[in-house]
Amino acid sequence: MASPHPDPRGSRDTAPTCRWCRSTQGDVVLDLGDQPPADLFPAGDDPGPDPVHPLRMWLCASCGLAQLAEDPTTPDEPRGAEPQALVDQARDAVARVEAAGLVPAGGGTVTEFGSPHGGSWLDLLAGAGLAEVTDGRPADVVVDCFGLMHEADQREGLAARAAATAPDGVLVLQFHTLAAIVADGGWNALRHGHFAYYSTPVLTAMLAEIGFEVTHALLFDLYGGTVLLAARRTGVPGPRDEVSVQTQIEREEGVGVRDAGVVAALGAAADASAGTLREHLAERRDAGRSVIGYAAASRAVPLLNRASVGPDLLPAIADGSPGKWGRRVPGVAVPIVGPEEVTRRAPDEVVLFVTDLLEEMRTRLPEVEAAGGRWVVVDPTVRVAPPRRT
Protein backbone atom coordinates (compact mmCIF):
# COMPACT_ATOMS: atom_id res chain seq x y z
CA MET A 1 0.00 0.00 0.00
CA ALA A 2 1.13 3.58 -0.59
CA SER A 3 2.44 5.37 2.47
CA PRO A 4 -0.20 7.75 3.93
CA HIS A 5 2.54 10.06 5.16
CA PRO A 6 3.86 13.00 3.15
CA ASP A 7 7.43 12.80 1.94
CA PRO A 8 9.54 14.66 4.52
CA ARG A 9 11.88 15.81 1.74
CA GLY A 10 9.23 17.98 0.08
CA SER A 11 11.35 21.02 -0.70
CA ARG A 12 13.53 22.29 -3.52
CA ASP A 13 15.84 23.68 -0.85
CA THR A 14 16.87 20.24 0.37
CA ALA A 15 19.14 17.96 -1.65
CA PRO A 16 17.24 14.79 -2.59
CA THR A 17 18.18 11.55 -0.86
CA CYS A 18 17.73 8.39 -2.89
CA ARG A 19 14.65 6.45 -1.90
CA TRP A 20 16.62 3.24 -2.34
CA CYS A 21 20.35 3.60 -1.64
CA ARG A 22 20.20 6.87 0.39
CA SER A 23 22.81 8.55 -1.77
CA THR A 24 22.59 12.31 -2.28
CA GLN A 25 24.48 12.21 -5.59
CA GLY A 26 22.31 12.64 -8.65
CA ASP A 27 20.71 14.96 -11.17
CA VAL A 28 17.30 16.52 -11.72
CA VAL A 29 16.43 15.23 -15.18
CA LEU A 30 12.91 16.65 -15.51
CA ASP A 31 11.44 19.71 -13.81
CA LEU A 32 7.75 20.44 -14.43
CA GLY A 33 7.63 23.33 -12.00
CA ASP A 34 4.79 23.64 -9.50
CA GLN A 35 1.94 21.27 -10.33
CA PRO A 36 -1.28 20.26 -8.56
CA PRO A 37 -1.36 16.70 -7.24
CA ALA A 38 -2.39 14.39 -10.07
CA ASP A 39 -4.43 12.24 -7.66
CA LEU A 40 -6.51 15.13 -6.34
CA PHE A 41 -9.72 15.77 -8.30
CA PRO A 42 -11.62 18.53 -6.47
CA ALA A 43 -15.40 18.77 -6.46
CA GLY A 44 -16.78 20.65 -9.44
CA ASP A 45 -18.05 23.49 -7.26
CA ASP A 46 -14.77 23.83 -5.36
CA PRO A 47 -13.51 27.28 -6.44
CA GLY A 48 -9.90 26.58 -5.50
CA PRO A 49 -7.21 27.67 -5.68
CA ASP A 50 -5.77 24.18 -5.83
CA PRO A 51 -2.56 23.39 -3.97
CA VAL A 52 0.59 23.07 -6.08
CA HIS A 53 3.91 21.44 -5.33
CA PRO A 54 7.23 20.93 -7.10
CA LEU A 55 7.21 18.06 -9.58
CA ARG A 56 10.71 16.91 -10.49
CA MET A 57 12.34 13.65 -11.52
CA TRP A 58 15.74 12.94 -9.98
CA LEU A 59 18.11 10.25 -11.24
CA CYS A 60 20.35 8.75 -8.58
CA ALA A 61 23.96 8.68 -9.77
CA SER A 62 24.79 5.79 -7.41
CA CYS A 63 22.09 3.18 -8.05
CA GLY A 64 20.39 4.60 -11.16
CA LEU A 65 16.85 4.74 -9.74
CA ALA A 66 14.70 7.49 -11.29
CA GLN A 67 12.38 8.96 -8.69
CA LEU A 68 10.45 11.95 -7.44
CA ALA A 69 12.88 14.49 -6.03
CA GLU A 70 10.25 15.47 -3.45
CA ASP A 71 6.57 14.98 -2.83
CA PRO A 72 4.86 16.65 0.13
CA THR A 73 1.40 15.52 -0.99
CA THR A 74 -0.85 12.99 0.72
CA PRO A 75 -2.09 10.23 -1.63
CA ASP A 76 -5.83 10.55 -2.24
CA GLU A 77 -6.39 8.93 -5.62
CA PRO A 78 -9.93 7.79 -6.53
CA ARG A 79 -9.72 4.19 -7.63
CA GLY A 80 -9.81 4.14 -11.39
CA ALA A 81 -11.93 2.04 -13.71
CA GLU A 82 -9.87 -0.85 -15.06
CA PRO A 83 -9.17 -0.40 -18.78
CA GLN A 84 -9.77 -3.42 -21.01
CA ALA A 85 -6.13 -3.22 -22.13
CA LEU A 86 -5.06 -3.80 -18.54
CA VAL A 87 -7.50 -6.69 -18.17
CA ASP A 88 -6.16 -8.29 -21.34
CA GLN A 89 -2.55 -7.77 -20.28
CA ALA A 90 -3.21 -9.33 -16.87
CA ARG A 91 -4.71 -12.40 -18.53
CA ASP A 92 -1.72 -12.65 -20.84
CA ALA A 93 0.73 -12.15 -17.98
CA VAL A 94 -0.82 -14.86 -15.81
CA ALA A 95 -0.82 -17.27 -18.75
CA ARG A 96 2.86 -16.57 -19.39
CA VAL A 97 3.70 -16.90 -15.69
CA GLU A 98 1.97 -20.28 -15.66
CA ALA A 99 3.73 -21.38 -18.85
CA ALA A 100 7.08 -20.45 -17.31
CA GLY A 101 6.45 -22.82 -14.40
CA LEU A 102 6.26 -20.05 -11.81
CA VAL A 103 2.94 -21.20 -10.34
CA PRO A 104 3.24 -24.19 -7.97
CA ALA A 105 1.87 -27.39 -9.47
CA GLY A 106 -1.13 -28.66 -7.55
CA GLY A 107 -2.00 -25.30 -6.03
CA GLY A 108 -0.49 -22.89 -3.53
CA THR A 109 -0.97 -19.47 -2.00
CA VAL A 110 -0.77 -15.90 -3.27
CA THR A 111 -0.51 -12.40 -1.83
CA GLU A 112 -1.17 -9.34 -3.97
CA PHE A 113 0.11 -5.82 -3.32
CA GLY A 114 -2.49 -3.71 -5.04
CA SER A 115 -2.47 -0.43 -6.92
CA PRO A 116 -4.92 2.50 -6.79
CA HIS A 117 -5.17 2.33 -10.59
CA GLY A 118 -7.57 -0.61 -10.44
CA GLY A 119 -7.19 -4.21 -11.42
CA SER A 120 -6.34 -7.42 -9.63
CA TRP A 121 -4.84 -10.74 -10.64
CA LEU A 122 -6.39 -12.69 -7.77
CA ASP A 123 -9.31 -14.15 -9.74
CA LEU A 124 -7.02 -15.21 -12.56
CA LEU A 125 -4.55 -16.77 -10.15
CA ALA A 126 -7.39 -18.54 -8.33
CA GLY A 127 -8.14 -20.21 -11.65
CA ALA A 128 -4.52 -21.36 -11.64
CA GLY A 129 -5.00 -22.99 -8.24
CA LEU A 130 -3.70 -20.24 -5.93
CA ALA A 131 -5.59 -19.26 -2.80
CA GLU A 132 -5.21 -15.78 -1.34
CA VAL A 133 -3.36 -15.54 1.97
CA THR A 134 -5.56 -13.90 4.60
CA ASP A 135 -3.61 -14.56 7.80
CA GLY A 136 -0.35 -12.79 7.04
CA ARG A 137 1.70 -15.90 6.34
CA PRO A 138 4.29 -15.80 3.52
CA ALA A 139 2.86 -16.85 0.16
CA ASP A 140 4.16 -19.09 -2.62
CA VAL A 141 3.57 -16.28 -5.13
CA VAL A 142 3.62 -12.56 -4.36
CA VAL A 143 2.31 -10.25 -7.07
CA ASP A 144 2.79 -6.52 -7.40
CA CYS A 145 1.28 -4.87 -10.47
CA PHE A 146 2.17 -1.14 -10.52
CA GLY A 147 2.06 -1.03 -6.71
CA LEU A 148 5.68 -0.62 -5.62
CA MET A 149 5.99 2.77 -7.32
CA HIS A 150 3.57 4.21 -4.75
CA GLU A 151 5.97 3.58 -1.85
CA ALA A 152 7.77 6.74 -0.73
CA ASP A 153 10.47 4.60 0.91
CA GLN A 154 11.49 2.13 -1.77
CA ARG A 155 13.71 0.07 0.51
CA GLU A 156 10.90 -0.46 3.01
CA GLY A 157 8.41 -1.17 0.24
CA LEU A 158 10.51 -3.83 -1.47
CA ALA A 159 11.44 -5.36 1.90
CA ALA A 160 7.73 -5.76 2.71
CA ARG A 161 7.16 -7.66 -0.52
CA ALA A 162 10.18 -9.85 0.11
CA ALA A 163 8.96 -10.64 3.63
CA ALA A 164 5.58 -11.67 2.21
CA THR A 165 7.29 -14.23 -0.06
CA ALA A 166 7.75 -17.79 1.20
CA PRO A 167 11.37 -19.07 1.42
CA ASP A 168 11.00 -20.98 -1.85
CA GLY A 169 8.38 -18.61 -3.31
CA VAL A 170 8.30 -16.31 -6.32
CA LEU A 171 8.07 -12.52 -6.25
CA VAL A 172 6.48 -11.02 -9.37
CA LEU A 173 6.83 -7.29 -10.07
CA GLN A 174 5.27 -5.48 -13.02
CA PHE A 175 6.18 -1.91 -13.96
CA HIS A 176 6.14 0.64 -16.78
CA THR A 177 9.79 0.65 -17.72
CA LEU A 178 11.77 3.88 -17.77
CA ALA A 179 13.22 2.73 -21.10
CA ALA A 180 9.78 3.05 -22.71
CA ILE A 181 9.12 6.39 -21.01
CA VAL A 182 12.38 7.78 -22.38
CA ALA A 183 11.99 6.26 -25.85
CA ASP A 184 8.40 7.54 -26.20
CA GLY A 185 9.05 10.96 -24.67
CA GLY A 186 6.47 10.03 -22.04
CA TRP A 187 7.30 12.85 -19.63
CA ASN A 188 3.79 12.94 -18.19
CA ALA A 189 4.39 9.57 -16.54
CA LEU A 190 5.90 11.79 -13.83
CA ARG A 191 3.35 12.62 -11.18
CA HIS A 192 2.96 13.09 -7.47
CA GLY A 193 2.45 9.84 -5.61
CA HIS A 194 4.48 7.85 -8.14
CA PHE A 195 7.75 7.82 -6.28
CA ALA A 196 9.91 5.56 -8.49
CA TYR A 197 10.41 4.87 -12.21
CA TYR A 198 12.16 1.55 -12.74
CA SER A 199 14.38 0.13 -15.38
CA THR A 200 15.12 -3.58 -15.59
CA PRO A 201 18.85 -3.27 -14.79
CA VAL A 202 18.19 -1.07 -11.76
CA LEU A 203 15.33 -3.12 -10.31
CA THR A 204 17.34 -6.31 -10.89
CA ALA A 205 20.17 -4.80 -8.84
CA MET A 206 17.74 -3.68 -6.11
CA LEU A 207 16.39 -7.22 -5.84
CA ALA A 208 19.91 -8.63 -5.69
CA GLU A 209 20.67 -6.37 -2.72
CA ILE A 210 17.88 -7.98 -0.70
CA GLY A 211 18.87 -11.51 -1.72
CA PHE A 212 16.60 -12.11 -4.70
CA GLU A 213 17.70 -13.24 -8.16
CA VAL A 214 15.64 -12.28 -11.21
CA THR A 215 14.82 -15.45 -13.13
CA HIS A 216 12.48 -14.17 -15.86
CA ALA A 217 11.86 -10.88 -17.67
CA LEU A 218 8.66 -10.69 -19.70
CA LEU A 219 7.96 -7.71 -21.96
CA PHE A 220 4.46 -6.47 -22.85
CA ASP A 221 3.17 -3.71 -25.16
CA LEU A 222 1.04 -2.09 -22.44
CA TYR A 223 1.85 1.63 -22.01
CA GLY A 224 4.46 1.34 -24.73
CA GLY A 225 6.61 -1.04 -22.70
CA THR A 226 5.67 -2.87 -19.51
CA VAL A 227 8.04 -5.39 -17.94
CA LEU A 228 7.29 -8.25 -15.56
CA LEU A 229 10.18 -9.54 -13.48
CA ALA A 230 9.98 -12.81 -11.58
CA ALA A 231 12.51 -13.37 -8.79
CA ARG A 232 13.43 -16.02 -6.21
CA ARG A 233 15.78 -15.89 -3.29
CA THR A 234 19.32 -16.37 -4.50
CA GLY A 235 20.22 -20.04 -4.72
CA VAL A 236 16.66 -21.36 -4.47
CA PRO A 237 16.08 -23.85 -7.30
CA GLY A 238 13.33 -23.30 -9.83
CA PRO A 239 12.67 -22.49 -13.48
CA ARG A 240 14.92 -19.85 -14.99
CA ASP A 241 15.20 -17.94 -18.25
CA GLU A 242 18.51 -16.09 -17.99
CA VAL A 243 18.38 -15.17 -21.67
CA SER A 244 15.19 -13.12 -21.26
CA VAL A 245 16.68 -11.28 -18.28
CA GLN A 246 19.98 -10.48 -19.95
CA THR A 247 18.30 -9.47 -23.19
CA GLN A 248 15.99 -7.02 -21.43
CA ILE A 249 18.83 -5.56 -19.36
CA GLU A 250 20.95 -5.00 -22.46
CA ARG A 251 18.02 -3.51 -24.37
CA GLU A 252 17.32 -0.95 -21.65
CA GLU A 253 20.97 -0.14 -21.01
CA GLY A 254 21.17 0.60 -24.73
CA VAL A 255 18.39 3.17 -24.40
CA GLY A 256 20.44 4.99 -21.76
CA VAL A 257 18.28 4.54 -18.66
CA ARG A 258 21.21 5.34 -16.35
CA ASP A 259 22.42 8.34 -18.37
CA ALA A 260 21.16 11.63 -16.92
CA GLY A 261 21.75 13.40 -20.23
CA VAL A 262 19.58 10.91 -22.09
CA VAL A 263 16.75 10.91 -19.55
CA ALA A 264 16.83 14.72 -19.42
CA ALA A 265 15.55 14.78 -23.01
CA LEU A 266 12.11 14.34 -21.39
CA GLY A 267 12.17 18.09 -20.70
CA ALA A 268 12.20 18.95 -24.40
CA ALA A 269 9.47 16.37 -24.98
CA ALA A 270 7.33 18.10 -22.33
CA ASP A 271 7.63 21.47 -24.02
CA ALA A 272 6.88 20.03 -27.45
CA SER A 273 3.83 17.95 -26.53
CA ALA A 274 2.23 20.62 -24.33
CA GLY A 275 2.65 23.23 -27.06
CA THR A 276 1.28 20.93 -29.72
CA LEU A 277 -1.79 20.05 -27.66
CA ARG A 278 -2.63 23.67 -26.97
CA GLU A 279 -2.20 24.62 -30.62
CA HIS A 280 -4.38 21.72 -31.74
CA LEU A 281 -7.23 22.61 -29.39
CA ALA A 282 -7.00 26.31 -30.17
CA GLU A 283 -7.25 25.57 -33.89
CA ARG A 284 -10.32 23.39 -33.32
CA ARG A 285 -11.99 26.07 -31.20
CA ASP A 286 -11.28 28.81 -33.73
CA ALA A 287 -12.65 26.60 -36.52
CA GLY A 288 -15.87 26.01 -34.59
CA ARG A 289 -15.17 22.29 -34.10
CA SER A 290 -16.64 20.69 -30.96
CA VAL A 291 -14.29 18.72 -28.71
CA ILE A 292 -14.52 16.61 -25.57
CA GLY A 293 -11.80 14.71 -23.74
CA TYR A 294 -11.81 11.14 -22.51
CA ALA A 295 -9.94 9.57 -19.56
CA ALA A 296 -9.33 11.90 -16.64
CA ALA A 297 -6.24 9.89 -15.85
CA SER A 298 -3.58 11.16 -13.49
CA ARG A 299 -1.18 11.42 -16.44
CA ALA A 300 -3.52 13.98 -18.03
CA VAL A 301 -3.15 16.39 -15.11
CA PRO A 302 0.44 17.55 -15.70
CA LEU A 303 -0.18 17.63 -19.46
CA LEU A 304 -3.22 19.90 -19.23
CA ASN A 305 -1.52 22.13 -16.68
CA ARG A 306 1.70 22.32 -18.66
CA ALA A 307 -0.30 23.26 -21.75
CA SER A 308 -2.58 25.68 -19.83
CA VAL A 309 -5.67 23.97 -21.25
CA GLY A 310 -8.85 24.99 -19.47
CA PRO A 311 -12.59 24.74 -20.27
CA ASP A 312 -12.24 27.36 -23.00
CA LEU A 313 -10.25 24.84 -25.05
CA LEU A 314 -11.53 21.56 -23.58
CA PRO A 315 -15.10 21.91 -22.26
CA ALA A 316 -15.09 18.56 -20.41
CA ILE A 317 -13.37 15.20 -19.97
CA ALA A 318 -15.47 12.04 -19.80
CA ASP A 319 -14.27 9.17 -17.62
CA GLY A 320 -15.45 5.66 -16.82
CA SER A 321 -14.84 6.00 -13.07
CA PRO A 322 -18.01 7.14 -11.21
CA GLY A 323 -15.80 8.42 -8.39
CA LYS A 324 -14.56 11.20 -10.68
CA TRP A 325 -17.91 12.36 -12.06
CA GLY A 326 -18.85 15.85 -10.95
CA ARG A 327 -15.24 16.63 -10.10
CA ARG A 328 -12.74 18.64 -12.08
CA VAL A 329 -9.14 18.45 -13.20
CA PRO A 330 -7.01 20.30 -10.64
CA GLY A 331 -5.28 23.47 -11.72
CA VAL A 332 -7.22 23.97 -14.96
CA ALA A 333 -10.83 23.35 -13.78
CA VAL A 334 -11.88 21.17 -16.73
CA PRO A 335 -15.06 19.37 -15.54
CA ILE A 336 -15.20 15.57 -15.45
CA VAL A 337 -18.39 13.93 -16.73
CA GLY A 338 -19.73 10.44 -17.38
CA PRO A 339 -19.17 8.58 -20.68
CA GLU A 340 -22.76 9.19 -21.77
CA GLU A 341 -21.83 12.82 -22.36
CA VAL A 342 -19.72 11.78 -25.35
CA THR A 343 -22.80 10.42 -27.10
CA ARG A 344 -25.03 13.31 -26.02
CA ARG A 345 -22.65 16.00 -27.23
CA ALA A 346 -21.76 14.24 -30.52
CA PRO A 347 -18.39 16.01 -30.74
CA ASP A 348 -16.29 16.43 -33.85
CA GLU A 349 -13.31 15.12 -31.88
CA VAL A 350 -12.75 13.03 -28.78
CA VAL A 351 -9.32 13.72 -27.32
CA LEU A 352 -8.12 10.51 -25.65
CA PHE A 353 -5.49 10.85 -22.92
CA VAL A 354 -4.64 7.13 -22.58
CA THR A 355 -3.41 5.49 -25.79
CA ASP A 356 -4.18 1.95 -24.65
CA LEU A 357 -7.89 2.78 -24.40
CA LEU A 358 -8.32 3.56 -28.10
CA GLU A 359 -9.68 0.25 -29.40
CA GLU A 360 -11.77 -0.29 -26.29
CA MET A 361 -13.41 3.12 -26.60
CA ARG A 362 -14.02 2.71 -30.31
CA THR A 363 -15.91 -0.46 -29.50
CA ARG A 364 -17.84 1.12 -26.63
CA LEU A 365 -18.62 4.36 -28.45
CA PRO A 366 -18.94 3.49 -32.16
CA GLU A 367 -21.33 6.40 -32.59
CA VAL A 368 -18.38 8.83 -32.48
CA GLU A 369 -17.00 7.70 -35.82
CA ALA A 370 -20.41 6.73 -37.18
CA ALA A 371 -21.42 10.40 -36.90
CA GLY A 372 -18.24 11.56 -38.63
CA GLY A 373 -16.24 12.32 -35.49
CA ARG A 374 -12.70 11.21 -34.93
CA TRP A 375 -10.45 10.11 -32.10
CA VAL A 376 -7.33 12.13 -31.28
CA VAL A 377 -4.79 10.38 -29.09
CA VAL A 378 -2.68 12.49 -26.73
CA ASP A 379 -0.27 10.40 -24.69
CA PRO A 380 1.58 12.70 -24.62
CA THR A 381 2.07 13.59 -28.30
CA VAL A 382 -0.92 14.49 -30.46
CA ARG A 383 -1.98 12.24 -33.32
CA VAL A 384 -5.26 11.75 -35.14
CA ALA A 385 -6.25 8.10 -35.18
CA PRO A 386 -6.86 6.84 -38.73
CA PRO A 387 -10.42 5.67 -39.46
CA ARG A 388 -11.19 2.29 -37.95
CA ARG A 389 -11.16 -0.57 -40.41
CA THR A 390 -14.46 -2.38 -40.78
Rank of each mutant, 00 (worst) to 15 (best):
S3H: 05
P8W: 00
G10C: 06
T14E: 15
C18G: 02
R19L: 14
C21I: 11
T24Q: 12
G26T: 11
V29C: 07
L30F: 08
D31V: 15
L32Q: 05
L32G: 02
A38I: 04
P42V: 07
G48Q: 07
P49E: 08
M57T: 00
C63T: 06
C63G: 06
A66C: 14
Q67C: 07
D71F: 08
P72D: 08
T74K: 08
R79W: 05
Q89R: 13
A90I: 09
R91E: 15
A95D: 13
A95M: 06
A95Q: 09
T111G: 03
F113I: 05
S115N: 04
P116F: 03
L122V: 15
A128T: 06
G129R: 00
V133N: 05
D135L: 14
A139N: 05
V142Q: 01
M149K: 04
M149Y: 00
A152H: 03
A152P: 00
D153S: 14
D153C: 13
R155G: 13
E156W: 04
A160W: 01
A160I: 07
P167D: 14
P167T: 12
V170E: 01
L171E: 07
L171I: 10
Q174G: 15
T177Y: 02
A180H: 02
A180K: 00
A183N: 04
G186W: 10
W187A: 13
N188F: 08
G193W: 03
P201G: 05
V202G: 00
V202T: 09
L203T: 10
L203S: 04
T204F: 11
E209M: 11
G211Q: 06
L219A: 13
Y223V: 12
L229A: 05
T234L: 10
E242D: 14
S244N: 10
I249G: 01
D259I: 06
D259M: 04
D259Y: 01
A260W: 03
V262P: 03
V263G: 04
L266E: 03
A269G: 08
T276Q: 11
E279H: 04
A282E: 07
D286S: 15
A287P: 09
S290L: 11
I292S: 08
S308Y: 01
S308R: 09
V309D: 00
V309E: 01
G310C: 02
G310D: 02
L314C: 08
I317R: 00
A318I: 12
S321F: 00
G326T: 13
V329M: 13
E341F: 02
V354I: 07
L357R: 07
L358M: 09
M361F: 08
L365W: 15
E369M: 14
A371W: 02
W375I: 10
V378N: 03
V378S: 10
V378E: 09
V378W: 06
P380M: 05
V382E: 02
R388Y: 06
